[in-house]
Design a protein around this nucleic acid. Structure first.
Lengths: 144, 144
DNA sequence: ACACATAGTGTAGGGTATTCACTAATGAAG
DNA sequence: CTTCATTAGTGAATACCCTACACTATGTGT
C-alpha cells in the first residue's frame, strides 16, 4: 500500500476521533467546534470582516453570520461596523472571548503534550514540517 | 512555540480545509462526509453490527441509525438481521455501495499522490509512522 | 420467573451548512 | 450626477448530523 494513501486515510480518520475527544471541553465552555474554530481564528489574527472570515475558513458568508450569532449570544464576540464601508461588519473578541481563548490554548497545549508523549522529538519536528507543507498545499488547492 | 502545540493546531485546521475540498466529489456521489466515513469503514472491515459501528466511529447508536437510513435510501447499504441476536442488525454494502467505495478509493489515491507531490519519500514514511501512532493514542484515550 | 442490561429506533431539539432572494451600500461608466 | 453592475451581510427555506431521552423487543443471570 502506498504511503500517501495510508497517510491521507489516517489524517481523514484522525479528525472525527479528535473532535470527539474535545466535545466535553467544548460543551463546558458553551462552544461548538466550528464556533471554537472561528473564535481561535480571531484570537490569532485579530478582528476581521465577515467576508474575510468566510474566505479564510472556507465556508459561505451565510455560515459565518450564523456562527457569529452564536458567539454573540454567549458574549464571546461582537460585531462592529467597518467605518470605511457601511455594508461591512468587523467581528472581534470580547474580553471574555479572549479569556476563553487563552484558557483553551492552555488546555490545548496540555493535551498536545499528553498525546505526543513517547514520540521522539526529532520525529515530531519532522512531522510538523511535513504536515505544515501539506496544509499549505491544501490551501493552494482551495484557492484554485 | 512547542512542536506539539503547532502539530496539534495544524492537524485541527487541516481537517475542515480537507473536508471542503472533498465536498464536490461527495455531492456528485450523493454522499456526505459522515456517510462516506461509515461506508468506507464497512468497505475495509466488512459487515458490522450497528452497535459496533457506533463504537468504532465514536458516535451514538442513534447517529448510526440515521446515517444507515441515508445509505439505504441511496442504495449503498442494507440492513440484515443478526441470526444470533434478534435485536441486532448487521449493516453491509450493496453491490453499488461496493462499487462507489472502489471508485472513491481511486479518487482518494490520486488526490493523495497529488497532494503529497514534492515531499520526500522517507519523510512521508516517517510521517505515516508518527500519525499512525497518534491515532492509536487517540483511540486509547477514547476508550478510557 | 424475575430483574436487569442491551440493541435499535421514535421523538424533540440544537447546531452547521447550503442555496436563493433581498436590502443597502459601493464603485465604475456614461 | 445618474444609471447599473457588484459586493456585504442577512432572512427564509432546506438538508443533514448529532445528542438526550423514552420506548419496545430481546437477551442474560440468578
Amino acid at each position: 500500500m502506498k504511503a500517501s494513501t495510508i497517510l491521507l486515510r489516517e489524517l481523514a480518520e484522525l479528525a472525527p476521533l479528535f473532535d470527539q475527544l474535545r466535545a466535553d471541553g467544548l460543551r463546558r465552555r458553551q462552544l461548538t467546534l466550528p464556533r471554537r474554530r472561528l473564535l481561535m481564528f480571531l484570537h490569532h489574527e485579530g478582528p476581521l470582516r465577515s467576508s474575510d472570515l468566510a474566505q479564510r475558513l472556507a465556508i459561505t458568508p451565510r455560515a459565518v453570520t450564523a456562527l457569529v450569532d452564536g458567539l454573540v449570544v454567549t458574549g464571546y464576540a461582537e460585531r462592529r461596523p467597518d467605518p470605511t464601508d457601511r455594508r461591512a461588519m468587523f467581528v472581534e473578541l470580547t474580553d471574555s472571548g479572549t479569556a476563553i481563548c487563552v484558557d483553551m490554548q492552555n488546555s490545548f497545549d496540555n493535551f498536545a503534550s499528553q498525546l505526543f508523549a513517547g514520540i521522539d522529538t526529532n520525529e515530531l519536528d519532522a512531522t510538523v514540517q511535513t504536515i505544515t507543507t501539506i496544509r499549505r498545499n491544501l490551501e493552494q488547492l482551495l484557492v484554485a
